[in-house]
Design a protein around this nucleic acid. Structure first.
Lengths: 195, 195
DNA sequence: TAAATTTTACCGACCAGTCGGTCTATTATA
DNA sequence: TATAATAGACCGACTGGTCGGTAAAATTTA
């Protein structure tokens, strides 16, 4: 069989369940739990309501929970790529750039994929809050391991500290429509790593 | 005129407009913009819908905007009391305790009074986002002046840094239902002040 | 100062539209 | 020919918002 061109493109076609989660993940990032309506999800995916309740019999809460995990995995992968094979300083700086790029590309609609839902914790399904917490823990452990492998002392404390900083700067950058709150955190990476 | 007891209690009675703002401020802190319904506000205040639209002709967005400012003022006062007349280290530590107490007293429903609304910035009325940004700026300037008066160098940068940390830890503590993410920030106050 | 007028505050029925969710029928797949 | 998946009509509750109207202050006028 001849191949007239050197480019082979593999197209991964998401099934309905995956597309529902994918779109929901986008929406909760922008508008949180209460701002995300299943009717809008259905409209964007282009499937009727019955499909949603076939794949998610428990309804909205089940869908949102899956979307939290999905968004968490997605983001971890992006951070992983930014960190891989670099010094701690450079890797963390590039990780900040990932967040900055997402804000700019979305005209400041896409903040932390989890935070908008997590803000409503306490007033929504407890399992959704637990999902958010698990994602945060996963990110933090990942960063902790990364720092440890680079010989950083007290990696756990520092990973915790860095995550608080990033999360806060993410919120402030979005609220101010100004990425400086994130990018200026680069100044403090060294301070924290050497503390 | 005789005063049989030495205690005089002044009771300030809020008018309808103020009560609407006050209750809305409570609600947006827990559930954000989309999670706060005017019908629930009306139920809690005990007034009919017409009253709301008399005081806030532009409706929900106007009410939320006022509640953002109101909540911001309120919180600044609490922080001010925690900081007043103390060293920078002690003041900031006590400021963290204010946040910790609010989380504990509300069973982790009350996070930052502004953040839950700010998370939806980009998808809601731009004037509301601006209100959030103004409150954040106000808090930060306040802290900057406080640090300056205590001879802290680069007070602006440090106030920015401290606010990112606090805001992030606030989010994480709420998501994890664990105040440690906030209280452990006390470890880093000194590091930042001396950086 | 009394009467006339305007302004402010409040009330609640009602509107169209949307919410999350249920149900049954049809189609595709194995 | 079962089973999985898709389809969409339908439901009651709830959403933010509009409307015509009442009652009492505050202000103006006589």
């Amino acid at each position: 069989m001849s191949r007239p061109f050197g480019l082979i493109v593999y197209v991964y076609i998401m099934n309905t369940r995956e597309r529902l989660i994918n779109v929901t993940s986008d929406l909760i990032r922008k508008k949180g739990y209460f701002g995300t309506g299943i009717n809008e999800v259905l409209k964007q995916v282009g499937v009727p309501k019955g499909s949603l309740y076939h794949h998610f019999p428990k309804g909205k809460d089940e869908l949102i929970r899956e979307a939290v995990y999905y968004g968490g995995e997605n983001q971890m992968q992006k951070y992983g790529e930014a960190l891989r094979g670099k010094t701690a300083e450079q890797g963390l700086s590039d990780m900040i750039d990932v967040m900055v790029d997402e804000l700019l590309k979305s005209n400041f609609e896409d903040g932390c994929p989890i935070a908008a839902v997590a803000m409503a914790a306490g007033t929504i399904d407890e399992e959704i809050r637990e999902a958010c917490a698990k994602v945060f823990i996963g990110w933090q452990n990942n960063l902790e391991g990364y720092l440890e492998r680079r010989g950083v002392k007290n990696a756990q404390i520092k990973a915790e500290e860095l995550y608080s900083m990033f999360e806060g700067a993410y919120v402030l950058s979005k609220a101010h429509k100004d990425v400086k709150y994130l990018s200026l955190q680069k100044r403090f990476i060294e301070t924290i790593l050497n503390s």
